[in-house]
Design a protein around this nucleic acid. Structure first.
Lengths: 187, 187
DNA sequence: ACACGCATGTAATCGGTTACATGATTGA
DNA sequence: TCAATCATGTAACCGATTACATGCGTGT
């Protein structure tokens, strides 16, 4: 149900489904993924519920675009969602479930598993650090004197980076503990 | 698709759907949630695919139980899943998306939002710390000399705790930054 | 002529949630 | 007798993914 609110949130400016997809890719990629095949029907259902209204507009390059904007009731729905407080829920991380059952494979494969995991998250982290650094170069007010519309996205970005770092640290810790265990059984 | 592998992983010992649900609640609750209404049909589909076989057995208390056990091909499917390496994928955290759009509500509501978030995760963390502590009391080998079947679950538990702590720290940081900003605009 | 980016959609399927239906056994 | 726990399932629905279908406009 949350994609609905994400779209409402991004519709501060009128936009087409295609636009929204691109904004998702740019600013929320590590936060909320969505495919066009999910976005288009959802936008049309939201218009039905009168959270949005649309009109067609010619494009300067390409076929005509359907531009959506929020209605007042759409704006209200967004505010209600935020007023309702944090929407917690179960996380499901396949790779963490895999760790749970890792004793089913050999020792070398287990070490490999953690090394792959760590390098995957290191790559993600570097990418995000690059974006963050670029933001800092662009804007002398970065980060604490940013306008609010840029400040809160930056906070989310920061948490994602912190979580990746936590996972990387944990992988290192796991590898170390596993090696220590290996040595002590060898004795 | 991962619930399938979680069930395969938990079927080291034969078990009924009801058993599996209870094991999930006990050991993986913060890691993988699943409802009986999802488990029962999935088990039956897995038997169709010959990953499992079942037989009915009388229960000492209650109606008869359908006990499942892994087939060799089920065992192999589990191992293949682990050999394939970490199964990463997009996380979708509604509450983090909410932070992104927090400028749509007033300052007081934003502070409230972070306080609610922090106290929610503090509660989760305390719960997990309690479990961890109880494990330590029970077993003198805890944590590093544990048997493997207990050691890896413990590693997953530890990551979840570390992540909760990261979120709690971040909430504190956000609250501080927000207050600093508020002061500097008041000047 | 062809590839690429722009642009909108539908259909099939899968994974997960909520609600409903049924019934046995045990202990207060 | 009544509630709680044990135990298995179905049906309806929602959210997300994958694959498919269509067609405009621009630059090579």
């Amino acid at each position: 149900m949350s994609l609905q609110f994400v779209l409402l949130g991004m519709l501060a400016e009128p936009a087409s489904g295609y636009d929204l997809k691109q904004r998702l890719e740019k600013s929320l990629r590590h936060l909320w993924a969505a495919d066009l095949a999910q976005i288009y029907p959802l936008l049309s259902r939201m218009e039905h519920k009168q959270l949005l209204i649309s009109h067609m507009e010619a494009s300067d390059r390409g076929p005509p675009r359907r531009l959506y904007r929020r209605t007042t009731s759409g704006q209200q729905a967004l505010i209600d969602w935020l007023h309702a407080g944090p929407d917690l829920g179960h996380e499901r991380l396949s790779w963490l479930a895999q760790v749970f059952f890792l004793p089913s494979v050999g020792h070398a494969e287990r070490l490999d598993f953690f090394r792959q995991l760590r390098s995957g998250f290191q790559q993600h982290l570097h990418e995000l650090q690059g974006i963050d650094h670029a933001w800092g170069e662009e804007d002398p007010n970065y980060p604490d004197q940013l306008a609010e519309q840029a400040f809160y996205p930056r906070l989310t970005q920061r948490l994602v980076m912190m979580k990746y770092q936590t996972i990387i640290d944990w992988c290192g810790e796991c590898l170390q503990r596993m090696e220590t265990r290996k040595k002590s059984t060898a004795k």
